[in-house]
Design a protein around this nucleic acid. Sequence first.
RNA 1: UGGGGUGUAGCAGAGAGGCAAUGCAUCCGGUCGUUAACCGGGAGAUCGGAGGUUCGAAUCCUCCCGCCCCAGCCA
Length: 431
Amino acid sequence: MDFHYIEDIVKLEGERTTIKGWLQNKSSKGKIQFLWIRDGTGIIQGVMVKGEVSDEVFELYDQLTQESSLEVTGIVRKDQRAPGGYELNLSDVKIVQIAQDYPITPKSHGSTFLFDHRHLYLRSKRPRAVLKVRDELIWAIRSYFYKNNFVLIDTPILTGAVGETTTTLFETEYLNEGTAYLAQTGQLYLEAAIASFGKVFCFGPTFRAEKSKTRRHLTEFWMVEAEEAFYDNEENMDLQEDLVVYFVDWILEKCQKELKELERDISALEKVQKPFPRISYDEAVEKLQKAGSDIQWGSDFGGTDETILTKMFERPVFVYDYPKVCRAFYMKPHPEREGVVLCADLLAPEGYGEIIGGSQRNDDYESLKKRIEEENLPKDAYRWYLDLRKYGSVPHSGFGLGVERTVVWICGLSHIRESIPFPRTIYRLYP
RNA sequence: UGGGGUGUAGCAGAGAGGCAAUGCAUCCGGUCGUUAACCGGGAGAUCGGAGGUUCGAAUCCUCCCGCCCCAGCCA
């Protein structure tokens, strides 16, 4: 290659090198001019002093605009005054393309404007930091499952009428087979795969056509789901706890720079250590009522309830054993309590709320069949799922973790749209 | 789908019946070390749209449109 990356600049001190990238900003002091160049791996300051470069190159400065693409050549110099400690003493500047009126200026903008220009906004510092954390989070999760002998099972995105309940699904014509739905979970397919591999996971986009207009919802989001044969609800929680501690450690190790850029309180993340508190749904309701919530036993927590509850803890907290009425049909009934199912949600602390939903699955043919009938689900579509309870059914559990909500928590964001490169929300399909 | 709010120059943002501030971006000039630089000057707005009240409307009223926030649903 005839150029170097900014991340390698330290090794090149004293050498002449070429950097290719984009002009983040520039500044002129008359006889000395600065260019800040970004190449994807970092940012470096280029310096041109009148008399030390040819007049021809020095005057190119006037043509350069924010986000113009360029190739610059110069000698790498250590200098206290440079951001990052190193700068490039320029001898040559080649313009690749001049950007015309880049819309995102280095001043404040509203969120509507920024997300209308998401294709350009991706270049800004804050989105870069968030998306880097997202990337590391995904690597961490995959690494965890790989190390723990989970097998990746890619579940279908186009599905028939199977899913969790009757939440609104995106529909599309499917050749001669009628209507297909975009997947809202891969779980049922993972349950099929455990009899083959024991421990499996899937990682993909999921879709919900709910017209939610909150800071916690996207219509397209990424979910990692795991399913484990012979795990009960307790063991399922142990696994989730282990996974969360693993990826938080990973991010703390690899993303210091990004978390600092986002002004995240790192000490709050450092408190994410085992064991996580585990409270029953009954206890949670009691705590909430004492805190002034008007929640009644039998209903699910609202966003406000989750916020109140998680602010009571410094670590993520499990809430287990919810009423059957507010959970999905496939969860295993509690052996000793009528109307309660074996499940647990993991709520992130500091008010962030639910990031994982998990449960022990109903492994009994008759009782599951009855639940499917009770929920008025299309029986034919679930025939194969019921089959799994006929041929070597075993106790098993699993969970789903929302990638974006986890990114929101780790980065300390206030809106989920920042946690994904191109958010799809109720009113946004572009860019 | 409800409840609340908002819309003024490319962007951000004052003005709340009487000549539409200001900052950034842009254009011109200046400045030998900047970190969202600074100093001086110029240009840029039929105030979201359509009606109405008024001598006079960005400002008050009605309807429409866009967006934001909150709730529900959930990851």
